[in-house]
């Protein structure tokens, strides 16, 4: 007599696994940091101090260049009007104290004077933190007006020592 093997259909109990996963998902969601990495293109190498234009040369070329010097006390902008506009820090000149809004206004004025120009010279003093340089690049590159973005100076050139008076 042949025996008939009968297999019982056994369903795996997934409830405990599901419970574990439901606990793990919120925990991991809380620990995830979603950041977006963006970039500021700088197409040219920083100009050596000896190649950087002197203050006298900048004065002679005032109508041809837009220069933003970043100092320990604020910004000095050339090419946005007569002479050199000084934009002082709001406080003790930590990166958040620099007046990027006023710099943006100056860049709009400079763009009005030099509509075809795409290049802006950015000359930080040696002790200026990198965060301020990025803030200046933001302010000189574009500005939002309503729901549209105005492009200003798309090609920042970083130099060392530009605009310093030479002895």
């Amino acid at each position: 007599m042949q025996r008939r093997r009968v297999q019982a259909a056994v369903e795996l109990d997934l409830i405990p696994v599901l419970s574990l996963v439901v606990h793990l998902v919120p925990m991991l969601l809380l620990s995830v940091r979603f950041v977006t990495l963006a970039e500021h293109p700088v197409d040219r190498a920083p100009v050596e101090a000896t190649e950087a234009p002197s203050r006298e040369k900048l004065e002679a070329q005032e109508e041809e260049r837009v220069v933003v010097r970043i100092t320990a006390t604020g910004f000095a902008v050339r090419g946005a009007g007569d002479g050199e506009a000084q934009i002082a820090c709001a406080g003790s000149c930590t990166p958040g104290d620099y007046d990027y809004r006023a710099l943006g206004d100056a860049m709009v004025a400079a763009k009005g004077l030099h509509p075809r120009m795409q290049q802006v010279i950015v000359a930080p003093d040696p002790g200026v933190p990198y965060a301020v340089i990025i803030g200046v690049m933001d302010a000189t590159r574009s500005r939002r007006a309503g729901d549209r973005e105005e492009l200003l100076f798309l090609h920042p050139v970083l130099v060392t020592g530009a605009g310093e008076r030479r002895p």
Binding site: L37, E39, P41, Y100, G104, D105, G112
Partner: peptide
């Protein structure tokens, strides 16, 4: 290396709010 990219955290709030100044020419 002749070209650089400064990597930053993107999507920050714009520190420069819009003003009523005359719009500049866009290229």
């Amino acid at each position: 290396f002749q070209s650089y990219r400064f990597v930053v955290l993107g999507g920050a709030e714009r520190p420069i709010p819009p003003t009523g100044s005359a719009p500049s020419q866009v290229f």
